[in-house]
Design a binder for these strands. Structure first.
Lengths: 337, 337
DNA sequence: CTGAAAGCGCTTACAG
DNA sequence: CTGAAAGCGCTTACAG
C-alpha cells in the first residue's frame, strides 16, 4: 500500500542506495539511471519517508511556532508571513496554538521530541525556562514580539518604547492632557515597554502621571470594550484612550461610539498599536503604530540561521522601528507657530 | 548534547528496552524500575525522538492542515478549533498555508512524506487529484467547507444550499426585489451551493433571475468593496447586496456607507455568510448565516477516526445546518397579516 | 518483570 | 558511477 525505496529499487533494477541518490539530486549519477529510478518511483507513487530521512540526517526541516491568540490579526498576519518565508526555504511548520502560559512549556516539551530546526515563540508571558532549555540544546529559539529579561534567548521586537512615545506624543500634540491607557497583560515585556514610552512622553510634556488611568484589556476586543465602558460610563471624561494594541482599540472605539454615544475624535481621541488590517478600514480609521511584520519576520529567519547569514552563535535581541500612522481617531495637531 | 534512550539506560543501569517501556507507560513494569529510569532521564533532560518512534510504530501523531486564507476569520477560528481538538487528542498540527491552487498539490505531496494520521484540506478549489491520491493510500482526508464533485473524499460542509435559501428569503421578506450577489470563486462548491440556494429562493418568490447582478469578490474584503463600488457607483440601485461570505460583506458594507454615502439598511440591505466575530460587532451588525464551526470540526475529527467512532471505511459527505442570524443590515420583515 | 535482537526506511562514507 | 553495509533511535514480539 505504501512503497519504500526498496520497492522502487527492485522495480528499477538498481540498488536501494541508488534510489536514494536519485531523490537527493546526487550529481555524480548517470542521468539515465536517475530517469529509470524516477520512472519506477512514479509508477509506485513512491514518496520518501521523511521520518527515516530525519533520523539519519539528524535534522527535520521543521520549524515549530507557538502562538497564542489567533483572534488577533497581528498574529495571524505574522503566521501567514512565517509560513510563506518557511515554505520558500523548504521548511515545514509545526503549529502550537496555546491558551495559557503553562501550555507553552508543555508545547516546548513536545517540540523537543522533534528535531526541529528552530522554534518561534510568540505566545504567553509565562515561564520561559523551557525556552532556555532549548537554547541549551543548541536549538535556535526566537521569541517574537516579546523578550524574556534575564534569559539568554534570541528575540525580535518592535521598538516598543519609541513607539509608545511616538503615539503618546501624537495624542499630546493633538491636545490630550488626560488619558485612559488600556494595557494587555502587566507581565508582557511589549506591554511594559509601550507603557514606559507612554510615561516618558508624558514626563517630557510635563504632564503628571496621575492624569493617566490604567485599565486592563487582556489584549482582546472584549477587554478593550469593557475597559472603555468602565472608564467612561460613570460620567468621567478623558481626552484620549490609548490602547496598547489595536484589537483592544477596536473594542474601545466601538464601546465609546456605540454604547456611550461619544464622538471620536471630537469628544475623545483613540489610538492603538500594531496597525492590523482592520485599523485602516473606514469604520475605524485608527491612529496607531505600525509594526513592520515583514522586517520582523526576516530578522527571525536570520536568527534561525535561515537567512543570508549563518545563525548567530550568541543570543541576540533585535528591535526594528515602528511607524506612527496618523488617522481619523486623533485630531490633527494645530500647526506650530 | 542530545541524549538517547541508550544513554539513559546506561545511567539507570537497565536495558534500552526498559527505558522505552518506562516512557510508554508499559503496565507490566516494576514501579521502582520506572522511577529509576525517569530519574536518569530527568538528569539528562532526555526527550524521546519522535522520528525514531514514528519510524517503528508507522504512525506519526501528526495531522496536516492545508489552509488558504488566514485573513478570513472563519478560517483562523476554524484553525484555532482544530488546534484545540487535536491537542486534546495528542496529535500535532503541521500547517500549510497556501496561496493558489497549484500549491495545494505541492503541499499534499510534501505531506505524504510524513506518515500523517490525517489531512484536512480547507484551501483552494484547485485540482484535488492529490486528495484522491491520499485517499487511495488510506490516509484519511477531509475537505472542510468544500467538497470535490466526483471524487471519493470525505468532506464536511455547512448546508450551503439551505443557508443560501434562508438568507435570501430573509432579504425577500424584508422587501428586497433586486439584488447584487457578490460571489467568491465560481469553482468553489460552497459558492455554487449558496448561489443555488439564492436562485431557488428567488424562484420560489417569483422573482426573475435578471433581477440579480452577479459580481466577483474573490472572498476578500477588498473584493467585496470593489464589487459594491462597481455595482452602485454609476447610479444603479439595488434593494440588497448578498455577499457569499462575511469578509466580502464587510468590504461591501464599508464601501456602501463610507464611499457611496448610502444608508444601510434603509437605502440598501446587506447580508453575508459565516458569522465571523466581526459580523456581530457594532459597526457592522451584519445579518448572516452562522456556520457552526464547533460541530463542523467535530465531524472532521470523526472522519479522521479521532472521534468516538472508528474512521468510516467509505468516503462520507456530511452537512451540518447553518443558522440564520438577523441583525441590523436588513430591515425587519413586516409582520404577516 | 526485564533483556537481546530484529526491524522501521532512509543516508552516507567506503569500496570498487 | 554504483552497490553493500552500517547506523540513525526508537518499539515490540520473543525468551526467560
Amino acid at each position: 500500500m505504501r512503497f519504500t525505496s526498496n520497492d522502487v529499487a527492485k522495480l528499477a533494477g538498481v540498488s536501494q542506495s541508488t534510489v536514494s541518490r536519485a531523490f537527493n539530486n546526487d550529481t555524480s549519477m548517470a542521468p539515465e539511471t536517475r530517469e529509470k529510478v524516477l520512472r519506477a518511483a512514479q509508477k509506485l507513487s513512491y514518496v520518501p519517508n521523511s521520518f527515516a530521512r530525519s533520523l539519519t540526517t539528524q535534522k527535520s526541516n521543521i520549524v515549530a511556532i507557538v502562538i497564542g491568540d489567533l483572534k488577533n490579526s497581528f498574529y495571524t498576519e505574522s503566521l501567514a508571513t512565517f509560513s510563506r518565508e518557511l515554505r520558500q526555504r523548504n521548511k515545514h511548520l509545526l503549529l502550537f496554538n496555546v491558551d495559557i502560559g503553562s501550555e507553552t512549556d508543555e508545547a516546548v516539551r513536545q517540540i523537543l521530541e522533534y528535531q526541529v530546526d528552530g522554534i518561534i515563540l510568540t505566545a504567553a508571558t509565562a515561564s520561559m525556562k523551557s525556552a532556555q532549555l532549548c537554547f541549551n540544546r543548541n536549538i535556535p529559539v526566537v521569541t517574537f514580539n516579546r523578550y524574556v529579561p534575564g534569559v539568554q534567548v534570541n528575540s525580535v521586537c518592535c521598538e516598543n518604547i519609541e513607539g509608545g512615545k511616538a503615539i503618546t506624543r501624537a495624542l499630546i500634540d493633538a491636545g490630550a492632557r488626560s488619558f485612559v491607557v488600556v494595557y494587555g497583560e502587566k507581565e508582557a515585556t511589549t506591554n511594559q515597554d509601550r507603557l514606559t514610552g507612554f510615561y516618558t512622553a508624558l514626563e517630557q510634556a510635563g504632564i503628571p502621571r496621575r492624569n493617566a488611568r490604567l485599565l486592563r484589556g487582556s489584549y482582546t476586543y472584549e477587554g478593550g470594550q469593557k475597559a472603555a465602558l468602565k472608564a467612561f460610563s460613570n460620567g468621567d471624561r478623558y481626552d484620549a484612550v490609548l490602547c496598547l494594541n489595536d484589537v483592544m482599540a477596536l473594542g474601545a472605539l466601538d464601546a465609546l461610539r456605540y454604547q456611550l454615544g461619544l464622538q471620536v475624535p471630537d469628544d475623545v481621541m483613540v489610538a492603538g498599536f500594531d496597525d492590523i488590517p482592520e485599523a485602516s478600514r473606514a469604520p475605524y480609521d485608527l491612529t496607531t503604530v505600525r509594526q513592520p511584520i515583514g522586517r520582523m519576520v526576516a530578522e527571525v529567519m536570520e536568527m534561525l540561521g535561515l537567512g543570508t547569514q549563518p545563525a548567530p552563535s550568541t543570543a541576540l535581541t533585535k528591535s526594528v522601528p515602528g511607524v506612527l500612522i496618523r488617522r481619523g481617531t486623533t485630531r490633527p495637531a494645530p500647526s506650530k507657530v
